[in-house]
Design a protein around this nucleic acid. Structure first.
Lengths: 320, 320
DNA sequence: GTGAAAGCGCTAACAT
DNA sequence: ATGTTAGCGCTTTCAC
């Protein structure tokens, strides 16, 4: 029908007819049925985005990078949340693939066998994001969390700290936190050091947990001169506690987190952290789905970004 | 085909045939095409959820209430973000309605004419959430922000504070913040008081803005004895600043925010706030879409929840 | 318990 | 520039 042409601005339609159709559509409150359209055209303007959590602060920013890159391309992101549970990931993925999206962007490289099979069989661009330490199904955009852990460890050692504690989350499926921990410990080992203490937390307010765990650890291991937090939120909690208790930061006690959260800007003292390139990861992954890789490549791209250390005010300047 | 029956567990199929079909599906990595299914059955197991922002902390919690209530019902939430822009809301809504969802949950009561027309014409349950101060298209679940503002003002006055400043966001389309401001001012007026100073901020880290605005305002209006913040994030920034500067809180200077964010638990001092019932709003709205209203009603429900004042440690106990 | 046929509301390709 | 036709991959209904 001509109507279809008008509504999609396709083909030649006389301005007169065009106006008449548009007018009628408006009067009737007509909303086209994309289901039928998609079925007929075999094209769906949706990009499935699968993330572990919405409340993590990290992912909203990735999302915003994705939305921005997709703006004006006709593609729309659709979000699914897995709560860090592989079986939920499998469900969400199945559900989303059954709508035949134009691409999939999903966090992490660790997926169930079934999920991997679905991804491989989907026949659309698949972009795994956040992490590059592992095997990708198709394309991947992220940082090396193992390297991030190492680099932070080196910076800490270089600044002269030696007695180091680690505070992190105990989520079994947060592979990126795990890899940072691994990289961190490896770099300590290379320098002949080891973690003196470590503690992991479950649910609850991360800021509060950071405070509580820090109090615990400093009481238990009073000789520590540095605390490395697996994320900025618990790091901020720990920092607030240390300031309140009058610890001399960063002289006697150094602190660092991870993520480069905007929230840190508002604290009395700037926590050392490492930017996770969240927004850029979002942007680049969306571009890959669009096939707009800068190098003209399509599929199987591997983009490793470099997180930058932000020393802030909670780590001593290394002696030169 | 019999295959269809098996995959939907519908109708009578012999266990033998059933197994054979299932096996084949697995072997082929078959993922059903929901597009075709939806077109044929005129049913889509999606609920459109339209919110202004994902980074506001408030909405992820609403989302989680929705997901929880939808769990196991066969319905799936799909999120759209408007960035507080009415024209984007219109777009997102149009886009989502064109997929013929089973229901719509959207934040706020203020929508463009066109949006309202689409909602009315959709023929599905529409639930407007967060706010009850206004006209709803269909059902509504939320709190009265006007009342929340009033109640906070009364509590402040009752505690003996008289010289009050207001700090808020200047987003023109954040109607709920606006209504809290209105209610707050109205209650002050009833007590013969008026705001002594006010300031509004644009983008940026809310925590940092809270800190900066507080510094500004206290320098400009040193006689203030209370600061009311339109949200907990800027309130937390202000609180940290005041503590750092050695203000006597809550004796000489009282503070309060809004939302009941979990984050507040981790601060050195508990900011007074008001719980916005976010999770329950999510849950109840999803139940309305499901038609599981407690009172057995369907459509046109109006559920007003009561936010509770959490005095924390930043507001004096009223003299008794 | 299983198969056959019609059609959901569009788009694509081909007329006219 | 506009109309016509045949599907898209399912569900539904009805027949066997």
């Amino acid at each position: 029908m001509t109507v279809s042409r008008v509504l999609r601005n396709r083909g030649d339609v006389s301005p007169v007819t065009r106006e008449r159709v548009l007018e009628a559509a408006r009067a009737l409150g007509y909303v086209p049925n994309k289901i039928a359209g998609a079925l007929a055209s075999q094209r769906v303007n949706l990009v499935a985005v699968i993330i572990p959590s919405m409340s993590n602060m990290v992912f909203p920013e990735v999302m915003s990078g994705i939305s921005q890159a997709l703006e004006g391309t006709g593609l729309q992101p659709v979000v699914g949340v897995t709560d860090y549970a592989p079986e939920r990931e499998e469900n969400v993925l199945y559900e989303m693939l059954s709508w035949r999206p134009s691409g999939v962007i999903l966090a992490g490289l660790e997926h169930s066998e079934a999920s991997q099979a679905m991804l491989r069989a989907a026949g659309i661009p698949i972009v795994e994001i956040m992490d590059v330490d592992g095997e990708a199904v198709d394309s991947v955009v992220g940082i090396s969390h193992r390297r991030a852990g190492r680099e932070m460890a080196r910076a800490i050692i270089e600044a002269g700290y030696r007695r180091i504690g680690f505070l992190g989350s105990n989520m079994p499926h947060d592979h990126r936190a795990r890899k940072r921990h691994e990289g961190f410990c490896a770099a300590l080992a290379e320098a002949g050091l080891a973690l003196e203490d470590q503690e992991f937390y479950g649910g609850g307010s991360a800021l509060l947990k950071g405070r509580e765990m820090t109090a615990d650890m400093l009481a238990r291991s009073p000789g520590l001169d540095f605390l490395y937090y697996s994320n900025d939120m618990i790091g901020a909690g720990g920092l607030l506690y240390c300031l309140q208790q009058g610890y001399e930061v960063p002289g006697a006690l150094g602190l660092a987190g991870f993520n480069g959260l905007e929230l840190l800007d508002g604290l009395p003292v700037r926590l050392a952290t490492m930017d996770a390139c969240r927004r850029e990861i979002g942007r680049r992954s969306a571009e890959l789905v669009l096939g707009v890789d800068v190098d003209g490549l399509v599929g199987g791209a591997r983009i490793e970004l470099s997180p930058t250390l932000q020393p802030g005010d909670t780590i001593r300047r290394p002696a030169r």
